[in-house]
Amino acid sequence: MKRNRTALAVVRKTGRGVLVMLLVTLAIVVLMASAPGSVAEVILGQNATKANVAALNKELGVDKPVFEQYTQWLSHALRGDLGTSPLTHQSVTTAIAERLPVTLELTVLAVLMALVLAVVFAVACASWPGSPLDRALTAVSSVFLSVPAFIAGPVLIYFLSVRLGWFPVMGWTPIGAGFGENLRAAIMPSLSIALVEIAAFHRLLRTDLIGTLGEDFIGAARARGMSRAYVMFRHAFRPSSLSLVTMVGLSIGRLVGATAVAETLFSLPGLGQLLITSIGSRDVVMVQGMVAFTGIVCVAVNTLADIGYGVVDPRVRRVAAA
């Protein structure tokens, strides 16, 4: 009974996610069609005649009405065929599969770093709210929150790579070529996109922890003589991490977007970089395929977050559908 209701909530949310994806991919076609320039011009180069461009556009099918282009793409996509780039002649799925590991690693690393640092910060702050430590960490957090990755990245590069030489300035080493080197290449770009998330997680968790620590059941656990650390981690942490779970789900979507910046900045062969080049060359097929793929990932992650919510809080299993 309870389980059914959770399932219902998940189905409803997933349905909403699919709808959003349809709208987004449609919007991409419309936007790309109305933007100046076309993939044919890119392929044929500067000296192409108008007639040549029109012919190639016709061949590629981009001269058809926008809606027709879209339904055609969709019917293929639903069968798992995201098409082939007219520019590189590479299949979109292959291109994604090739570049996914980089983006995935950056995202996972960024989430992990953000979580670990945010938890340390938040627990310290909530243990002594209003203390100088709390105020200092909260101030640091505010700075993180207001610094976008395209500024944080160069600053990190300057200090940690150029001045200290701890990490490579740019470039990528795949995991296959040595785990340590791979990690060294991944840490800085991940950190530059994680800063905002650290701040966001920290603020949320700090507030929730302070709220929870004021609850009667915390007083009751103290009155049983449980230690500070035990009360914090075994009683206060879980009920305080509910909104954090949702936040992490949302932040993964944000991070996937942010990896585009980091990959460009650090010249890493990931999805984001491909997306940006594809947009530049009006490669609608590639852009469309990548947006669809990213969308699926985001919907899946948010569904997982909903399920995680129920795992963290037994009461939610009952009220999830409400």
Binding site: E215, D216, I218, A220, A221, P239, D313
Partner: peptide, 12 residues
């Protein structure tokens, strides 16, 4: 404590 509903941890 006064309110048993609130003095037990809801997630434990």
């Amino acid at each position: 404590f006064q309110d048993p509903g609130r003095s037990l941890n809801p997630v434990v």
